[in-house]
Amino acid sequence: MSGVQIIAFALCFCGIGAIIAATVSNEWKVTSRASSVITATWVFQGLWMNCAGNALGAFHCRPHLTIFKIESYIQACRGLMIAAVCLGFFGSVFALVGMKCTKIGGSDQTKAKIACLAGFIFILCGLCAMAGCSLYANRITSEFFDPTYIAQKYELGAALFIGWAGSALCIIGGSIFCFSIAENNKTPRMGYTYNRAASAMSIRTKGCNGSADLKMPRAPPKHFDKNAYV
């Protein structure tokens, strides 16, 4: 089970890294080339700032200076992604304590409970990240396919796909943690039979009654005359 837990922890660790990369990225949505008038300039936005670039390689970013003027779905996505990062951190700590290959955490039963808790935390981490990315993507697609929306339309950015991939890895790794503990609890314990020590009398009887390994020499029979005791 230690190898399975190591694989699960590696999946979760990569997923948390992808979630952090998606959270700090500025490419949550990019301008659609189909509706853009100037194709040499594009705009891409994230949770923390808006950026613009051109074909010459010049970029300019402007952070969101206040949270009160930001749209509600961006604030919700911020909260979900930050919650996912925090859950991933605590899940990693619990996973390191509960894994069988580590020497901390107490007895095997205690470590199993901690590892199962880490699996649930990783699953929650993945669900939060997936909800945040899906909420942002839903807003982009609804604006893109809305014929009455006349403002600049955007497409899905690379950060959304990175966030989805990271959340999937966390969910898979957390599920492996939980199922590995369940399989470990279902494994039947090996029974031990207790053989009583053979008594000295039984060993002596066995040796005298025809044991193949212990052959005792027999004394030759003695013939006594009828006047031997007279």
Rank of each mutant, 00 (worst) to 15 (best):
K186Y: 11
S142F: 07
E71W: 10
I121Q: 01
S32H: 01
C133V: 05
C51N: 06
S175R: 03
D213T: 08
S134L: 07
A182Q: 10
R78L: 06
M201V: 12
K29E: 03
N138G: 13
Y192Q: 11
L156R: 06
I172W: 08
L156M: 15
L127W: 09
Y73H: 14
T23S: 03
A118W: 00
I114D: 04
T31Y: 00
K111N: 09
W28I: 01
L87D: 03
Y192T: 12
E71L: 03
G210W: 00
L87C: 07
T102G: 12
D146S: 14
M99V: 07
A219D: 01
C77F: 05
G46K: 03
K103P: 00
I70N: 08
A8Q: 03
N50C: 14
R62M: 13
P220Q: 12
E183F: 14
C178K: 10
Q152C: 01
K226L: 11
M99F: 06
R196T: 14
S107E: 09
K222R: 14
F122Q: 10
D146V: 05
F144T: 06
L11T: 09
I203F: 10
M130A: 07
K113C: 01
C51K: 07
G15I: 03
P63F: 07
K186H: 04
L160S: 09
G88D: 06
I121F: 10
S107F: 06
V43Y: 00
A55D: 14
